[in-house]
Design a protein around this nucleic acid. Structure first.
Ligand SMILES: [Mn+2]
Ligand SMILES: [Mn+2]
Ligand SMILES: [Mn+2]
Ligand SMILES: [Mn+2]
Lengths: 219, 219
DNA sequence: AAATATTTTTAGGTTTGCCTAAAAATTAAT
DNA sequence: ATTAATTTTTAGGCAAACCTAAAAATATTT
């Protein structure tokens, strides 16, 4: 249906739009795909002709519904294969991305869905990234907050419940960003505060108010 | 390392050389790959330049050792993936060939070998075709003879222990060819003869001497 | 041995996807 | 508001694989 290359472009654009709201710029796409801007322009025209994205000269692009569907399906394949490689074939989580980059282009919806079932419908890939279901819906980034994590467990920050500027600024000050690993050291029974160690070894003390507003997944 | 297309050519040529002794002709390759003879000629030159096969104008081709290695590795990948699809993902054996045709081109020796281990080093694919090991060695067509098959089981004829012309002629007379399915109906305790039903429903009575010379695999 | 048929190769094109270099448009800095 | 810097597009090419049609070589008949 769609070529290797087309799927790669759509996936890159999906990720850029996720980050950038305004859409994906030619240069950003070029950088992400390790191609030249001229090649990207050419491809954008083709994808636009195929109604996979909206392109107007010099204006960057956004995916159409169809384009989004194809991109999400590709992400789904990529992440499911990564789960397979790590959970079933015992690859290390650092080795699987490159192989998944190839496997994600295998064309068979039935294969994807059977793989999904075989893996027991995982919601996150080995790097903690969410896996869209057959319908293209991503799992709630997490319904689990840091308060539910027990000492010695490692959590990965996935999102925030409180999205107020104040809270986000506070997190920034703590150097607590999405994707950060948090090892729970201790939970204080007295005030329910937590001592956690960041990936960079820094140790933080988080109040219950803070930890109950952090969506995480266990590593 | 090698492109999708190159692997397909080498695999096709391997199979044709297997059948034809004399090597593979341009036309035969074209037919097998559903391409035009002109395209094949062009590709043969490229593969010859890369030392994957020996090509002399108008003389057909044979694979070099390197070419054989690549072709066998591709067959290995193809058949291992077929086993995966049938045994693990519960595909029907008639659905897997097309998907394996895509999966066989994934480039990662480590993946292939880990898949092999995950599947417990299968010797045959779902269609009974032998799977070469990591070193490129095909299994002995079968070490199991028909005598070891129990009533109600179905066996597929894979080879013969006795290769004498007499025996082969006898098999031909019985219409018993490689690949034939044999359902064991009864085993006579008295003389160890067997009653078997062929795929075409014909029922045969085979002496122990015959059944002990037929290499089979269970279906 | 010639004539005919078949196979294979050559010659010239197409499509996909990528490139460099130059031109045009947009954005940022005086 | 100009000028300068950056981004994006256009123009012109290249390589991998494919194609059709015509020419050359080989194989088969007469
Ligand atoms: Mn990945
Ligand atoms: Mn990819
Ligand atoms: Mn197959
Ligand atoms: Mn193939």
């Amino acid at each position: 249906m769609y070529s290797f290359t087309e799927e790669n472009y759509l996936k890159a654009i999906l990720h850029l739009c996720d980050a950038n709201e305004k859409g994906a710029s030619t240069n950003a796409i070029a950088q992400k795909l390790d191609a030249k801007a001229a090649s990207v322009t050419e491809m954008l025209k083709k994808l636009s002709d195929k109604k996979l994205l909206n392109y107007k000269k010099y204006q960057g692009v956004k995916l159409t519904e169809t384009g989004k569907k194809v991109a999400i399906a590709t992400v789904r394949k990529h992440r499911l294969w990564e789960v397979f490689l790590v959970n079933k074939l015992e690859f290390g989580w650092e080795e699987v991305h490159e192989i998944a980059e190839q496997l994600e282009h295998i064309q068979s919806t039935k294969l994807t869905d059977k793989l999904d079932a075989f893996l027991a419908y995982p919601k996150y890939d080995p790097h903690g990234d969410p896996i869209p279901n057959k319908a293209g819906i991503f799992p709630n980034r997490s319904d689990q907050t840091l308060t539910e994590i027990e000492p010695h467990e490692i959590a990965i920050l996935r999102g925030v419940k409180d999205t107020s500027a104040e809270f986000l600024k506070y997190l920034k000050k703590l150097e607590l960003g999405l994707g950060e690993e948090l090892k729970v050291l201790e939970k204080e029974a007295y005030d329910h505060s937590m001592q956690v160690q960041l990936g960079n070894k820094k140790i933080l003390n988080l109040s219950q108010q803070v930890s109950s507003n952090l969506f995480v997944t266990k590593k």
